[in-house]
Write a protein that binds this DNA or RNA. Structure first.
Lengths: 362, 362
DNA sequence: TTGAAAGCGCTAACAA
DNA sequence: TTGTTAGCGCTTTCAA
């Protein structure tokens, strides 16, 4: 006897055929009623009612996989990021938050593909484009220039903060060089002269651009950047802690810098931590400015440079969905234009005029 | 003429039939070679070579949707969380990191379903179980007791930090009550007496348990919790800031508490911020202890209670994949057992012996 | 207004 | 060793 009494115990979800059978109509009538398939214009009220009732009884749920196969569309966006292993990545969290917000407004869901590092992208990314997702967002990819040769042509792709221009892949980023420039200019205007830049990894274009902004601010003020005042390391708290510590040890006996310009909030907090441990007060003894305006900065009232991370995520979705729609309707693809959003300096509690006394590094 | 010369320009990825045609063999021979389908035991070397070459030329990629439809399995896990809108949720980030780590070891990918709040879960969750995912992880769900009635039976589900026991849904959590108890006990042992608890939302079971631990530590020490020293608010930095500020305003003219026990790191940082603005020193004037041990705590060297968030995520995946496998092999489902991981107190820089002087709230 | 048939790309059972 | 057939659940085209 069929277990009509306990539909919830069934192992498999009910299908359209099941519904049709229960309602005494064909599966496509059920499809027309339940999923709005445009089988044909109209369904009689009676059929509709019967189908709806049967669907209710059977707890019918459309199967997204089957529909995706038929439609060639899953309404799912993929996000590729390096995210596993080290310290949780707030940059990822903020952009991802924006992506999910954007995806929700377009009725899309989001799947995350994590890769250990971008060296494996060439093997992994094509394997993500296997029908599960309609388009891909690359988060802060570090790809070689030949990426256009091997990125799958059949899946629209956009990037956020790509280190390279990739043909056919629109990129969204914020104006990091300007942000760094403005922050450092403000520090110079306050009277700071010996500003240590604790930067991000060499080769990461964002980190490089922050260095450029740092240098431009100095150059424009007619100042030379103090020698040996740029260090590079990881973007994380530990990266900042380690890089700063090493620098301090190397410069023991020399005067403490007036200020630190960190390439990320995490780096800035790593520096803050080491400063406090050494008994130095911020900003009385030394000012600290971060970069990104993540929740870390807001929690610590860090002076920082705000990147519109959430907005980058939302706009990336907009652009990507536009491309997916265009392709679906066989419209010509838009030109792959890139978008640069502005950055702004955020004043916090860690930047003030420089100290007037001399402090020597212990 | 077929565009053999420019396979990359094709709109659609090559299929097994395409490969078979190109290689002059059937699609299932190609399937056997390329995807290890166990159509039959062996394929001749010649066929294999031809198929491989054709696949290479055509840049064949298996289609996960089609395979999923045939297999009834997508190798994808869904994560349901409330994540949109307010401040980025570090709790989510840390657990999610663990989930992705775990998923990777099981060859699964992860898709995130965000919901505005758990009130809409009843409508939304069943719609996620539509063939896209093989199982679901609910992150900190707040569901009514009748959830077992409407949660889809055909999809295995596990929860992390559920507020309720749900029949058929194994839950993973950490021992929050003990963590709170141990932290507060340590504070009491240090000599703190007037400990303000800035708690999380009423009704969130985790927040409630932290209050219980706070009370138990007092009771066990033969102390009564100071009246009016428990406030509840959001788990976020702003939540902490606001709740603490309001409390301070209400208690102007009265003595400053010895210490604050916050129900989350974010709350603790919100309190820290308000303390600093008021010119109070931590821990010299007042100690602060957080909860969770997120990156926030590590960045600020906050004394806190560590929950093994990443590990909860990883284990949730292990349990879920076990259930999926069992179901796939038609094995009897394991009993839905729950798992409680231990919490530990982490010493940081914000907890010390209480001050000896009297401070009055301004 | 409804139903039958074909196909999305793949896998499994069976035949040759 | 290989090909044929059927079917996963759905949609669409076309015929009744």
């Amino acid at each position: 006897m069929p277990d009509k009494t306990a539909p919830s115990r069934r192992r498999r979800a009910a299908t359209l055929s099941d519904v049709g059978r229960e309602a005494g109509v064909s599966a496509m009538a059920a499809s027309a009623v339940l999923n709005g398939a445009r089988t044909s214009t109209r369904i009689s009220e009676q059929t509709r009612a019967r189908v709806l009732e049967a669907a209710q009884n059977l707890r019918y749920r459309p199967n997204a996989t089957a529909r995706g196969l038929a439609d060639q569309r899953m309404n799912t966006l993929g996000v590729v990021a390096t995210l596993v292993g080290d310290e949780p990545n707030l940059y990822f969290l903020e952009v991802f938050n924006g992506i999910m917000l954007g995806a929700a407004t377009h009725g899309q869901t989001t799947t995350v593909f994590t890769i250990a590092d971008w060296d494996v992208a060439r093997e992994r990314i094509p394997s993500f484009c296997d029908g599960r997702i309609d388009g891909l967002i690359l988060l802060a990819p570090m790809l070689a220039g030949d990426a256009a040769d091997w990125l799958p042509e059949h899946t629209p792709i956009v990037s956020v903060h790509s280190n390279h221009e990739i043909a056919g892949v629109p990129n969204l980023e914020s104006d990091e060089e300007s942000g760094a420039y403005l922050a450092v200019r403000q520090m110079l205007e306050l009277g700071h002269r010996r500003i240590l830049h604790v930067g991000g990894p060499t080769g990461a274009s964002g980190a490089d651009r922050r260095v450029q902004g740092y240098r431009r601010a100095h150059a424009e003020a007619g100042l030379v950047t103090p020698p040996d005042h740029v260090v590079r390391g990881g973007f994380s708290v530990d990266g900042g802690r380690d890089a700063f510590d090493a620098w301090m040890r190397q410069h023991a006996g020399q005067p403490l810098p007036d200020a630190i310009f960190a390439a990320s909030d995490a780096i800035a907090l790593g520096c803050l931590d080491r400063l406090l441990v050494r008994g130095l007060r911020v900003p009385a003894d030394i000012s600290v400015v971060g970069f990104d305006d993540t929740v870390l900065a807001r929690a610590a009232r860090l002076s920082t440079v705000a990147q519109p991370l959430g907005q980058l995520g939302r706009q990336a979705v907009d652009v990507l969905v536009g491309h997916i729609e265009a392709r679906h309707e066989r419209a010509p693809a838009h030109a792959a234009s890139s978008i640069v959003l502005p950055t702004v300096v955020v004043s916090g509690a860690t930047l003030s005029a420089p100290r007037t006394t001399q402090i020597t590094i212990a």
